[in-house]
Design a protein around this nucleic acid. Structure first.
Lengths: 223, 223
DNA sequence: ACAAAAGTGTTCTCGATACACCCATGC
DNA sequence: GCATGGGTGTATCGAGAACACTTTTGT
């Protein structure tokens, strides 16, 4: 293998991605089982080394796709972790991202560097490689905070959804029940949702109106 | 010089620090004039390469001290910039920090890698090296946002200060005047300030009570 | 008829805003 | 006595919280 040499020591730089979704009204994160050392066989966040000619965000999306087969998620930089001894091999600085997606659209499959891929409920995480438990905790904290002043929650929704489904997402992330009338009043007042004009019938009850996001893709700051 | 070699290409990693203070009721940032290439002679944020055995935050504090002589500031990670071509020499990923300090305590002096050090009002910045204009813009945005839900503003205060001085800081960062009674009511209700029992006489008017922060060092989330 | 989620308004409370005058001091 | 910033209270407004019943559907 060719060698890459520098006058000064250079750390390695990786990205790690905490991809969240909501399954069965629980917040879950996507983990991969490590195929190689260190922490072989241990569960970890998907991620890997940044390539010379890609920006950090592209590296994160590429690693996520390579290791889990997942594409098309909402992605946002979280924090950069750089303690000198956080990886036993060499000095590795990790730029952590968090990502959101509706679970219905996802079919994760184990890729090259991963022996296995699986969703874990956030309240039932296995023991994790490196400092990834810390990364997930910070990501969850950020997600909760952004619920209140942004439209991150839309990252969990399919293109068309009901207000009931949206409320469930808010309730799941905040961990508490919300009043239906207040929630709807507030959400519709934001003027970020548009009725599709159709409705969805599911189960033995009245069909619900379907909505879509007025500005899909964008996470807006509100209030 | 010894060579440091790796099997894969490694980017260099630097920290850059946007140190803010308030001078003459204006928000200002500390810049250094670059002594070497690239952008020789250009103004830039203080910062430099992370050393193998220091964490990112320590690297930022060390660079700030080396290049400007400034120590003892409040420091917080801002964002990591990593476009492949942001430095003409090689791939350099920069972990940006922002820092706050009361200007009265600071006496910046040019250090090893800097030909000169100076404060610049944020509304009168010179043209800047690299992507540092973007870094400063993001830092200012973050600072403004955190005013509303945290106690970052205390980072600009000396150990003892008057409510009038604190209000000036809020007004400067928000760029608008605030009502004196409402400001004091709100600030005192937070229960984060303690009277020192003394007062300060300055100018031809009534002396002002002095306060100190109840939990110095900590930036708390409020509301 | 009944079970199950959809849909809909009003009242109350509390925090945010607007606003004007006296106080202590130096000159 | 006057100029200067320090210090104080009350009335109003609006957003958020609390709260219960009717509607539509399938069985």
């Amino acid at each position: 293998m060719t060698q890459h040499c520098y006058d000064y020591p250079h750390p390695a730089v990786t990205t790690d991605i905490a991809l969240f979704t909501i399954r069965d009204e629980r917040l879950a994160v996507l983990l991969v089982r490590r195929a190689g050392e260190p922490f072989k066989g241990c569960w970890a966040l998907p991620g890997g080394f940044v390539e010379p000619n890609e920006c950090l965000e592209d590296g994160a999306l590429r690693e996520l796709a390579e290791e889990t087969g997942v594409t098309g998620v909402y992605l946002e930089q979280l924090y950069t972790f750089g303690k000198p001894d956080r990886d036993p091999r060499e000095r590795i600085i990790s730029v952590a991202y968090y990502a959101l997606a509706p679970s219905e659209l996802l079919t994760p499959v184990a890729g090259s560097d991963a022996a296995d891929v699986a969703w874990f409920d956030l309240d039932a995480l296995p023991s994790l490689a490196f400092d990834h438990a810390e990364v997930i905790a910070l990501a969850q904290q950020r997600l909760r905070a952004k619920l209140d002043y942004s439209t991150v929650a839309f990252g969990f929704m399919q293109p068309e959804f009901t207000l009931g489904e949206l409320q469930k997402v808010y309730e799941t992330i905040r961990g508490e029940a919300l009043d239906k009338r207040n929630f709807r009043k507030h959400m519709l007042a934001l003027d970020l949702l548009a009725e599709t004009g159709t409705s969805r019938r599911v189960g033995n009850h009245r069909p619900a109106k379907l909505y879509r996001v007025a500005h899909p893709g964008a996470v807006l700051y509100i209030k």
